[in-house]
Amino acid sequence: MDQILGNIGLLFEFPVVNLKIVLDGIMVGALFALAAYGLALVWGVMNVKNLAQGDFVISGGYVSWYLVQNGFPALLGVPIAFIVMWGIGWVVYKLVISRVIERDLFTSLLATFGLAIMMAQILNLLFGSDTQSVDLGYDVLYFFDGFIDVPIAKLIGVLMASALAAGVIIFMKSSRMGQAIRATAQDARAARVMGIDTEKVYAFTFSLNSAICGAAGAIIVMVWVIQPFYGISYSIRAFVIVTAAGLGNLPGVIAAGLGIGALEQYGAHIFGIGYQQAIAVMLLLLVLLVRLIQQRRNRQVLK
């Protein structure tokens, strides 16, 4: 308890610590937001809630890590992870997801949960259960007499995440496929009547989601560590963000992602790093509770 109060005191004594936490939070949050955006995309377009979201992220990380082990330059890992995970996403779609789209929501949730267990275990068998990371070998920048340290690798990571997000946004706005995806999300039957091949749209959307997650994972492995069983916490964070922001609300997803990232960093600072997982989950419960109270006021429930 004293330690917690001490940690809170530190925030007021050295305001610059806040800046460091917020900065860290934004960097983490940008990556959370990517995974969350993919989740919202799949959720909105084909009404599938993907609990394996985090495992796609981790898989992407391992693709990049494996390449670096075999002598590839680290930055190349991101686009390659994007492509590889695109393919894996397509296979997963054909084998599993395509058969749960028309079913009730719990089916997709459970099927992807099973998928998550499988993916985590396969990664564990292939790469072992140690934590892994890729060292880019860049310097660390220091500000405010060394109070704030910003590794250049993290800056690069945030830039790549922003570039990826921007690319996806432009794609969704201007390409024909992007328009077809948005049309399907609004009304799949109407889209089919208008001659859109929704099956193709679904496959594309899921592959795209998987690829986005993969790229996010490849960035994560450069700035933090990954481990086969870290997937579930990324899935949970993605759910927190989407639940807080709602579907089809990209600015909301980004804002919520950054907010969740910052909140988590604050939580980790105050309660200690051991609580990081717990804080992520508690945030989920908190967000659900807040939404619940909002709905109850409207005499409604959270469906």
Binding site: F106, L109, L285, L288, L292, V301
Partner: peptide, 15 residues
């Protein structure tokens, strides 16, 4: 949690 329905209930209880 019972104000949550369907997938939200599942995820909430998992949480």
């Amino acid at each position: 949690t019972f104000g949550l329905r369907g997938p939200y209930f599942a995820i909430g209880t998992l949480g």
